[in-house]
Design a protein around this nucleic acid. Structure first.
Length: 426
RNA sequence: GGGGAGAUACUCAAGCGGCCAACGAGGACAGACUGUAAAUCUGUUGGUUUUUACCUUCGCAGGUUCGAAUCCUGCUCUCCCCA
């Protein structure tokens, strides 16, 4: 007897839309459900984390989650939410992306837990041998143009134009659902709210072709209280791949959530129970400055995505960068730890001679290193008391000498609270 | 095809012959406060320069003038109205 998956999502605020009858169908017996992931890049970003969590809950409720990586759909391009025709990725890149995304997804689900073990599929497997004629006869025949035209993803593009390729997308995805329904007894498709149209084309196709009932659940678009886009920083997307977004930055992203957002995120992105979360929220409201919610959230998510070791480094890095650490603390770090902490921080190398005679701050910030755009900017920041060397604020007349070197090799320059640069001497 | 309006720094948006590196707003960055928050206050936001000063910028190319973002000519692009 499965647990109530829908109720679980509901209190977490993870349901945007749901097809009538879904809850009943899922309560009856163990079912399979799937979510598709687009291989548009070689890593997923935290936007996809919502979908991943949905699958995790699905499995925890006793159902069988199927993660589909869209090798075939990726070749077509989903027009949902896109105002313009997209460029197609070449096959090689796509193949590479499929592999990477697959590996990432594998970390989150249990693939060996008996009958509701997770499964990973690639729709390229069933599309690669299908001919065009076969597709338009067996699939296209069941869905009318009128029906397809009524979709938002198509309607909104009537003015600007849309290729036949993208127009057909909903059928391709619809067929995925049909295929999984037929071969893996998959009765529900989950996804982001922008996927509603595509999912419904799938349930429609299933009903017409095989007479089965199929269901849909979509999750809301995650919003930030200040109106900016979730998952974006000045540096771009927040990715799950540590090569693209360092675990430290990843941890920081969650830690910097506003109070309001943190209350929502902790429900969506952690597996903590309702009671636990309610207690945390209560505790947080009593002592907001401790930021219990943000810390719990950041630790939980970073741990799940990057593992314990990376989380420890991220926490250590945060303490060093934001705590009351001193030059002594920096010097006590091993070289390995130092570079782990400052991974992703801009670095520049200068020769030992330059520092031997003393290196002026303007040269250190701009002329010799390019950390800042111009000498003028360097001068302004220095005047504004924004620059620190090895965690100590410095003035314009400060001169860097070999005795400031950490491990006789590098120097940490900071601008404000959040920007750091490393000067390496060789 | 005919007529009109416009193009200014990251964005919006003033300026309409010298006082313009260019009002103002937003954003961004920094400082104070704080919780690595929000709100608030302050500063900065083309380059070289300690200041002064100079250099490069107001769609592109020319021209008029002692002097142009501002006037003239041509070009490119955008928007609107009429066919």
């Amino acid at each position: 007897m499965p647990k109530n998956f829908i109720k679980e999502l509901e209190w977490r605020g993870m349901i945007h839309d749901i097809m009538p009858g879904t809850e009943e169908a899922l309560m009856k017996e163990m079912a399979a459900g799937y979510i598709g992931f687009d291989p548009t890049a070689d890593s997923l970003h935290i936007g996809s984390l919502v979908q991943i969590m949905t699958l995790v809950h699905f499995q925890k409720a006793g159902h069988k989650p199927i993660a589909l990586v869209g090798g075939a759909t990726g070749m077509v391009g989903d027009p949902s939410g896109k105002s313009q025709e997209r460029n197609l990725l070449d096959e090689e890149t796509l193949q590479h992306n499929v592999e990477c995304v697959r590996k990432q997804l594998e970390r989150f689900l249990d693939f060996d837990c008996g009958e509701n073990s997770a499964e990973m599929v690639n729709n390229y497997d069933w599309f690669k041998d299908m001919s065009f004629l076969e597709f338009i006869r067996d699939v296209g025949k069941h869905i009318s143009i009128n029906y397809m035209l009524a979709k938002d993803s198509v309607k909104s593009r009537m003015e600007t134009g849309m290729s036949f390729t993208e127009f057909s997308y909903q059928l391709v995805q619809g067929y995925d659902f049909y295929y999984l329904n037929k071969h893996k007894n998959c009765i529900v498709q989950l996804g982001g709210s922008d996927q509603w149209g595509n999912i419904v084309t799938g349930t429609e196709l299933i009903r017409r072709k095989s007479g089965n009932e199929a269901y849909a659940v979509t999750t809301p678009l995650i919003k930030k209280a200040d109106g900016t886009k979730f998952g974006k920083t000045e540096g771009g997307n927040v990715w799950l791949d540590s090569k693209r977004t360092s675990p430290y930055k990843f941890y920081q992203y969650w830690l910097n959530s506003s109070d309001e957002d943190a209350e929502n995120y902790i429900k969506i992105f952690t597996l903590k129970s309702k009671e636990e979360i309610e207690n945390l929220i209560k505790e947080h409201r009593e002592a907001p400055h401790l930021r219990i919610l943000q810390k719990t959230l950041a630790e939980d998510v970073t741990n799940r995505v990057h593992g314990k070791k990376q989380l420890q480094t991220a926490i250590a890095a945060s303490k060093i960068l934001f705590g009351k650490s001193t030059e002594e603390d920096l010097k006590s770090l091993s070289e390995e730890d130092f570079f782990a902490v400052f991974e992703g921080v801009p670095k520049a190398t200068i020769s030992r001679d330059e520092i031997q005679n003393g290196l002026g701050m303007i040269d250190a910030l701009s002329a010799k290193t390019g950390f800042l755009k111009s000498n003028g900017e360097a001068r302004r920041e220095l005047k504004g008391n924004a620059i620190s060397v090895n965690k100590t604020k410095v003035k314009e007349d400060f001169v860097i000498t070999p005795e400031h070197l950490i491990n006789d090799k590098y120097i940490l320059i900071g601008k404000g609270k959040k920007n750091n640069y490393i000067l390496i001497v060789e």
